[in-house]
């Protein structure tokens, strides 16, 4: 008998849930599991999965990143406005955008690790800061460059395909491999889990807790920005509020994927499964013509149920 760890079992459940949901979708609307439809669903899951990669990093140390909506939105707008839709400027715009995400995440980390601001408050405040800056600098999306499209090269990264699979999925596969390697086989990864289990003991053992914390939040900002780049490439143009759904979805993907929200346990593979299950559920609800408010209620209920199953604090009642 193979005995799976708790988190591995949860990741498996998430994959099974996704398969079940695909079956349900086919039952609701025949053609749901046609290759084109599945590929479209998985492409949407890539956006959630990228944001959730960053969220996984910070949740592993018992943190949270509430700043992803406007970091993502700012990244999408920054990419479009700095590239002006020209391929020649695509690379520098990409570097600028990802550096912005990394920098914002770095500030989050510094606020949390050095200034002692609770993660929820620091990242909530940062979300407001990025919202204000994005709205202010773009003049509420009235600026001349704001109507720019993403460069064709970025658009083909989101739309194109390679060896029969969407390019976005290849990117996600690469991210999954790298993130899993970093978490599973590097010192940085082991230290991340150690801080999540017990930050004080890690510090006493010589772990540079503050530096690692800053690094993790920087990564979260980076992945939110990367998702913003992919999203503007996918949609062509940026818009205000495009990041809003991703806060809830990224946290939901991590919870569905079985990582402990108290830190210390979880794998990115689980989050990948969680992203796919969540987006498949969204697609099934859409196929059932569920209005937006109904979906919003169902997401909340599902998260509560999963939290009750997975996320209970041990100890006295």
């Amino acid at each position: 008998m193979i005995r799976l760890s708790e988190t591995a079992r949860r990741a498996l459940y998430a994959f099974l849930a996704a398969l079940l949901l695909f079956g349900l979708g086919e039952w609701v609307r025949p053609g749901f599991i046609a290759p084109a439809s599945v590929s479209a669903i998985l492409t949407v899951a890539v956006f959630v999965g990228l944001v959730a990669a960053g969220q996984t990093f910070v949740i592993l140390i018992g943190g949270i990143d509430l700043s992803v909506p406007w970091v993502l939105n700012a990244a999408a707008i920054l990419l479009a406005t700095s590239s002006l839709g020209e391929n020649g400027r695509a690379l520098s715009a990409l570097a600028l955008t990802l550096a912005m995400g990394l920098g914002v995440g770095l500030l989050n980390g510094i606020g949390i690790a050095f200034l002692g601001v609770p993660a929820v408050v620091m990242t909530l405040a940062m979300n407001g800061i990025m919202e204000g800056l994005t709205l202010g600098f773009s003049g509420g999306m009235t600026c001349e460059a704001c109507a720019s499209y993403a460069p064709p090269s970025i658009q083909s990264l989101a739309h194109g395909s390679w060896l029969g699979l969407p390019a976005a999925l290849w990117l996600w596969l690469g991210v999954t491999l790298v993130v899993s390697f970093v978490l599973g086989a590097t010192v940085f990864g082991r230290v991340t889990y150690a801080i999540g289990v017990n930050a004080r003991a890690s510090a006493l053992a010589g772990v540079r807790v503050r530096a690692v914390t800053i690094g993790l939040y920087a990564l979260s900002g980076f992945f939110a920005a990367l998702a913003g780049v992919m999203l503007v490439g996918f949609g062509g143009q940026a818009s205000l509020g495009m990041g809003e759904p991703f806060l809830f979805q990224s946290i939901a993907a991590v919870v569905i994927g079985g990582a402990s929200i108290l830190g210390g346990r979880g794998h990115y593979v689980g989050t990948v499964a969680g992203s796919i299950a969540l987006v498949t559920l969204m697609s099934v609800l859409l196929a059932m013509n569920m209005p937006e408010f109904g979906r919003s209620i169902i997401y909340g209920v599902i998260i509560l149920v999963l939290l009750l199953l997975y996320g209970r604090e041990k100890g006295e009642a």
Partner: peptide, 15 residues
Amino acid sequence: GRLQPILVTLATLSI
């Protein structure tokens, strides 16, 4: 439920 207030209220916010 012995759940974390932040996650509970994030879920109920959506509801």
